[in-house]
Design a protein around this nucleic acid. Sequence first.
DNA 1: GTTCGAGTATTAGACGTCTA
DNA 2: TAGACGTCTAATACTCGAAC
Length: 441
Amino acid sequence: METVCRSCSRPKPEFFKALIGDFKQRLRIPHAFVKHISEESSGRVILEGPNHGIWHVKLNKTMNGILFLEDGWEKFSTDSSLRLGEFLIFKYKGDIHFSVRIFGQSACCKREDSFNVKSSQESPYVQGRRKRGKPPKSSKTEKQEQEMETLCPNCLDVKPEFFKVIIGDQIMLKMRIPPAFVKHVSEKSSERVTLECPGGDIWHAKLSRRADGMFIEDGWEKFLRDQSLGDEEFLVFRYNGDLHFSVTIFDKSACWREDSFEVNNPSQVANHPGSNPSMSFETNKHGTAEKPRRNRFLGLQNPNQYDPLHSFQGTEGQRKSSPNSVKHYEIARSKEWEAAFTFKKPYFIVEMKEHCVDKPFYVTIPSSFVRSYIPYKKVKMVLQTDNNKRWPVSFSKFATRSCICGGWAKFCLDSNLRKGDYCAFELVDELELRVYISRVH
DNA sequence: GTTCGAGTATTAGACGTCTA
DNA sequence: TAGACGTCTAATACTCGAAC
């Protein structure tokens, strides 16, 4: 169970961000999160890295009330070696103070890598390159060791974590633990998995070890059902050991789901400090309490509540350019581009470089995508766009890489692609890629 | 035996050059 | 000149050996 921290009596609001587009220049605060900081929406904020290093970043507000982390953000981004496709989770501690956790493309928390980054001066990265050899052992003072035992995980992020996005049908039956995370699970552990929501509710499921990975099933489906979890919701699993996971749920607004902090079992309500006394329960046919099902947000009914940059999806354990199920919408807004991405099919994203939009006109396809989805050495493919226009292109697989070349130039010119734009390629059919464009210019 | 530094291998992206 | 292919380089994982 999520313990009550001695340094905080209530849960701290969180939101997550996917690093896409111009994330190195600035980062938008999700609209739904602004309410938590609206009174302090102008000025400097403090970002605390995974190792408790501190960065000061200017929080700027646009005319239409959108908040961006800007001046100083680039330094934080550089010092933390943030990369496209990674995820950040911001926990708001109050007094414009955020702690930040970084999740790599393996879907696991990058804490181990970034733990020793105390500040830009002490970064183990030299000119952006990680120093070779094993990282030095993190040194903690005796006091810090004691605090680790008494502070709740939300206040001291020292436990391994991974995230998972609810996408597609398969995950409704079982959830694959990211391969990069499996090392944290002892081979001697039992098969009984405990999933605990912040409100204290507990679900049990079965852990299956198979040749193709480690899965949580038999009970997972009930957990999803009871939490009314559905497409595009984002879960963070914090591992407490002995197959006990604390689960934090984020909804489509990129903010934590506050109802996940409510207690599902009325018998627990009276004893739970964070419970909502006004919450009512219905009794199901079995006589057990059932939380009213959440009114799930299924579409862009209210674009103002939707943070278009949040939902670049994670992977099922793949290292790069995950072909996870996501769909991208293109949203152009004045000079700055914003895109909302929610794919349903395998995809990859490419930033348009000079060679993509000028001679010799080609796009390199991530090899992980090619291995998984394009078994051909040389084949004709079709690109299509939102307006149902189609462009024939050639796909070629070489010894060291694969690319789209023949025909790409015409697509590029017809679509007026420019250097710096992003293209998402969604594999809608065996030899058909739907292209979504995010324009920077 | 453990920790840490350093060398090597592998992979993927960028870019230059060749050829039909 | 467009497309095909080779080479270079960066990033990172893996392995080994020295120091403690």
